[in-house]
Design a protein around this nucleic acid. Structure first.
Lengths: 220, 220
DNA sequence: ACCCCTTAGATTGTCGACAAAATTGCTTAA
DNA sequence: TTAAGCAATTTTGTCGACAATCTAAGGGGT
């Protein structure tokens, strides 16, 4: 189903993935303190595994750690959302431009058929699309940029924080159909190898998405 | 002297900073394997401290780790340089634009006087400028963007890899004066709060810088 | 009543031991 | 001679113990 899957080879990996999931989906609440010994019993692993996981989570801005004091899950704020989407717009815009240049014809074909799959699902029920579907679409374009630094910054970096905002602050409803059209136009631009248009459409797409979330944040 | 200094409060911090320095400056050679027990005796710390350092180095793309196999220092390649500067141009361009918008008048004044200091040093001897001076200039603009994600991606992320390329593949000579002029124009644009010009000049500045390094890479 | 200092408890930082996995080198069979 | 399999060694992964630091609670002085 999901196009991009991370491989968990070691216990530390598995723990990190589960831990991250729990934070992104809110099972561990934003702002809460992370006690290492507590977590080590909860996940049934040694404390060093927990420490490594916390370090990794810090790298992707999901927790904040202070020396000798401890780590807390990040808080979700309107200002944080703004900063996040500001860089996301720039980076994913760049990814779209590079994808228009660097994706193979085969990859573009696959992307088109992915979109057709999504179209069926948008018509029937909206649930899938907003979750894995949307992520899948963006992932493919990010990977299509073929720039390893860009890919790492987005996928290991900010993407899970983006998901955290979306999952916990709600993001669904009537925008589904609109967003799908935007995806279609982006892929069209990529098919035409129109780098500048692809970037522009992607930036606009993300900007719309931000506005959509912001309006849902009544407390502004 | 240097504007942005990281505070080392713990042994793991100190070890990480020294370790990173050794890699960036080539004391530990690109491509070499990192043996944890060896390093733990070399730096006179426990192995867990070394492991944490390696994890951190992996986050900023200075080493590559494979599970159950080990970590190696990254290799410096023309292709890697190209990818790196591609994202650097985009991110620092963005930083310049945001700095033009968000820096306080006081910060801009300070930036101007920093430039005057550099001017004296450029006239007398070139050494300082290309090292700390240039970094200092870029750091201030990055911090001036006031976007924490952007700051973290650049300073904790790619900046040390940029330095590694510059230090190890050589980067000095007649470009010093040119680069200084470019810095001056960028600050001018920021003073005028001309966001688009600031971004454009910064991107061009970095692009020139890349060309300068690439021509020094005879093996192309 | 308030503040500072001391002390006890809890939490993080660092270390080396043991377990699991990979690498190396030797032996043996085709 | 080569290749495959096994054994020994090295290296990484995981764990819990001990040390250093922070936090909280209580007592004494003003």
């Amino acid at each position: 189903m999901a196009y991009f899957t991370e491989r968990a080879v070691t216990v530390a990996d598995k723990t990190f993935f589960q831990f991250r999931k729990d934070i992104v989906e809110g099972a561990i609440k934003p702002g809460s303190k992370l006690n290492e010994t507590e977590l080590s019993t909860k996940y049934a692993v040694g404390r060093s595994v927990i420490r490594e996981a916390i370090n990794r989570l810090e790298s992707c801005h999901l927790v904040e750690r202070k020396a000798n004091i401890g780590a807390r899950v990040v808080a979700l704020t309107p200002e944080g959302l703004r900063e996040l989407y500001q860089v996301r717009e720039s980076l994913e815009g760049m990814a779209a431009r590079l994808a228009a240049k660097n994706m193979t014809d085969q990859e573009i074909t696959d992307l088109n058929s992915l979109l057709n799959t999504h179209f069926q699902e948008v018509k029937t029920g909206d649930s899938y699309y907003q979750e894995a579907g949307d992520l899948d679409f963006h992932y493919r374009i990010i990977l299509g940029s073929k720039n390893s630094h860009l890919i790492s910054m987005l996928i290991n970096g900010i993407y899970h924080l983006v998901r955290m905002y979306r999952v916990q602050l709600g993001m669904a409803g009537p925008r589904v159909a609109t967003a799908f059209d935007e995806h279609k136009h982006i892929v069209q631009a990529i098919s035409n190898r129109d780098e500048e248009l692809a970037e522009m459409l992607m930036r606009r797409h993300i900007s719309y998405s931000k506005n959509n979330i912001e309006t849902k944040l009544a407390g502004y």
